[in-house]
Amino acid sequence: MSKIRIATTSLAGCFGCHMSFLDMDERLVALLEHVELNRSPLTDIKHCGPCDIGLVEGGLCNTDNVHVLREFRDNCKILIAVGACAINGGVPAMRNHFTLRECLEEAFLNGVGVENPQIPNDVELPLLLDKVRPLHELVHVDYYLPGCPPSADEFLSVLGDLLEGREPALPKKLLHYD
């Protein structure tokens, strides 16, 4: 029997959602009897193959995020926006109050304790977007898992529903945004 294939990634996030995913602890053993991980920071596979479920943490803050999200959408049958940042931009979106130039100047030129002030300009660096955006503004998102981070129980709830072939229905007692 083939396993359900899951890919995960963190875009403009803090990997807190991935840590919370791992908070399933010993329940991961049972989960891994039914799923296998494809592209994920947990496997270090660099590109996404055809997958059943994509879990995307974080919003979109640069061009690399855009490429990765499109790769996930192209390869995952079900795409899930995981956590506050993926759903509404979250804390990284607080830079949207300021222009990108103001942010860069504060961080790399005028900030406290900056030495050799210069704005990074290496061609290897992905360009920053003018605003941080949630996932659903770029691609279709099939389901949302709110929380900062979503608890391990939330991950189990939505993955359990999908593994059993049900439409995910997050119990209200698990619903929170903080």
Binding site: A81, A84, I87, N88, G89, G90, V91, A93, M94, N96, H97, P134, H136, V141, Y143, Y144, L145, P146, C148, L170, K172, L175, H176, Y177, D178
Partner: peptide, 28 residues
């Protein structure tokens, strides 16, 4: 700009509680 994780009202916020009550998962 309702960034719940950065808001000290989180948990005491009626707007947030209303969204829970109505089962809001995203901003759509």
């Amino acid at each position: 700009n309702h960034i719940c994780p950065s808001c000290e009202k989180s948990g005491d916020c009626t707007l947030q509680a209303m969204a829970y009550h109505l089962g809001m998962l995203d901003g759509h």
